[in-house]
Amino acid sequence: MQVAAVKDYVGVPRDVVDNFHGNQLVFIGWDDHLMFCAPLAFPFPPTLRFGDIVEKVLPGAYGYHPDWAKIDWSKVEWMKSGEPWTPHFNRSLAENGIGHKDAIRFRTPGLTGIQGSCS
């Protein structure tokens, strides 16, 4: 729908990838672990190896949670834009088809947060 305005009204999007100095935004959420109140936002270069996110970045973000150490990464279920999806750990974000502002979720079967409350 058009914005009702006194003259042409065209919005300038504020978050286009060019504004991020070579990075792109990636959003990552850990399902069933609402101790982290919302999915997290990261600026990553598109050349970053996906495995590096899991191995080097996420521990700093999620490591506080007692479930973190119990994750069996071979069983983790991934989603991109709400659809099941399989990442290649040895490929870059770009090679994994992860675009600017993509939202990725992972579920860790068997782990349901503090006392099973999904916290």
């Binding site: 729908m1 058009q2 914005v3 009204y9 919005g11 300038v12 999007p13 504020r14 978050d15 936002a41």
Partner: peptide, 13 residues
């Protein structure tokens, strides 16, 4: 009104 909300100044971004 997408042309309006694409302008949002999102603090994190």
């Amino acid at each position: 009104e997408p042309e309006k909300y694409v302008q949002a100044w999102l603090p994190v971004n």
